[in-house]
Design a protein around this nucleic acid. Structure first.
Lengths: 224, 224
DNA sequence: CAGGGTTCTCAGCCGGCTCTCAGGCCGGCT
DNA sequence: AGCCGGCCTGAGAGCCGGCTGAGAACCCTG
């Protein structure tokens, strides 16, 4: 089990490392938010212990950033009891559990094990791009608070674009994954992109669904 | 075992925390109803100890709210003996047990352990979607105060849809779970959806049972 | 065995969805 | 400026999914 501990206070960090190693975890340390973010992105950890008060990038933002990147590693947040952030904020941001300093080892380890057990990964039910949301289970789409009605084909197309948010996807990729064919006239994609724009962008004066001439389309992650 | 204690009186809260930690519980504190509600929603507690008199949101409403959200975490309510609410109210609202201040630790801990043992979760007696209710035990359905007569098949279908309220369920899922086959003509589902609509929606000018073309059906949680 | 209720099949209808086509627009290139 | 290729879009035809009325099969219950 690999644990990443992001904690700037040296003594605290070292203590955590020793303690967790004694429990059988493989522990990496990061001493500021930037390093923590970097390691969390590339390190394939089973769980992250994240202090809130950190130099450079706050734990608050590390968490937010990771979730925004669709990284669902379980996160346990730590905060000083007098902190400006509280537990509610932490959990809102996508942390999976929360401890207030001072805390006991026993409690920390118990919580970590609980996180690992339930596989945490609070995978969100919905896909997002800015204030555009799509809920695959409920088959619902909305721009801000306004629900948007889509036909099945439109829905499938938007879902595909959202799953590749910010990437450029070619018409042939779209044909293959949304239409399940590859020898169809690509014009049908253009037509449906047009339909989507008239439903999710135009009425809201947005421009999320962008054309990349010669390459394909891109759905802007900030919602346009 | 994780316990959430929602109690505004600092000394009382601290005492409960110490006492319960000594008993081996992991204890989180919330000092008003709003914080309590938030933590209870996100914290995955095994049991909640909930004072009734609280700032911002009363324990009364915290409990009501959680149950309305289908959160069945066991709740033990606390109240001053002269309170305006009494035990009956608390239990009506969906609390699982009830203690009147002052109480002894021994009793509190015993009650908590009892709740945890029986896994409490006073499972909801009825399924709801807006003013549409279905009582699986009594085999009764009503729209508002008006009882609705359903055949066994119609009842089973509605029950399945209610258990997946707001989600889109496909005809094949319905066939599998309500008809217990998967190679039957899906038209039979269409027929029964039609029957249901004529009994639970049309006479009340509602539209709870919605068609999601190409995907299946959705029972709207707000009752249509 | 008769009768009422329930379940299921079938076929026709309807409307919205999908896709094609052709013409126009726009950006980039010479 | 003029051309060309890629993209957009309005119109319309066809199709397909879902709805429903009719009725047959089934199953209790008396």
């Amino acid at each position: 089990m690999r644990v990443l501990v992001v904690e700037d206070e040296r003594r605290m960090a070292a203590a955590l490392q020793r303690g967790l190693q004694a429990e059988g975890f493989a522990v990496d340390l990061a001493h500021d938010g930037e390093e923590g973010l970097h390691l969390a992105r590339h390190g394939e950890y089973d769980v992250v212990v994240l202090d809130i008060m950190l130099p450079r990038v706050s734990g608050y933002n590390v968490c937010k950033q990771l979730r925004a990147e669709e990284n669902w590693v379980p996160i346990l947040m730590l905060s000083a009891k007098d902190g400006e952030y509280d537990m509610a904020d932490g959990l809102d941001l996508g942390a999976d559990d929360y401890l207030t300093k001072p805390f006991s080892y026993v409690v920390l380890v118990a919580r970590l094990r609980a996180l690992l057990r339930r596989g945490a990964h609070r995978r969100p039910a919905v896909l997002r791009a800015g204030d555009l949301t799509l809920d695959p289970a409920r088959r619902r789409v909305s721009r801000g608070d306004t629900p948007v009605e889509l036909t099945p084909r439109e829905f499938a197309l938007l879902e595909y674009l959202l799953r590749h948010r910010d990437e450029v996807v070619s018409k042939s990729e779209i044909l293959e994954h949304v239409w399940d064919t590859f020898d169809t006239d690509p014009n049908v994609v253009e037509v449906y992109v047009g339909y989507l724009r008239r439903k999710i962008d135009a009425p809201f004066s947005r421009n999320a669904l962008q054309t990349v001439r010669g390459a394909g389309y891109r759905l802007a992650g900030d919602g346009g």
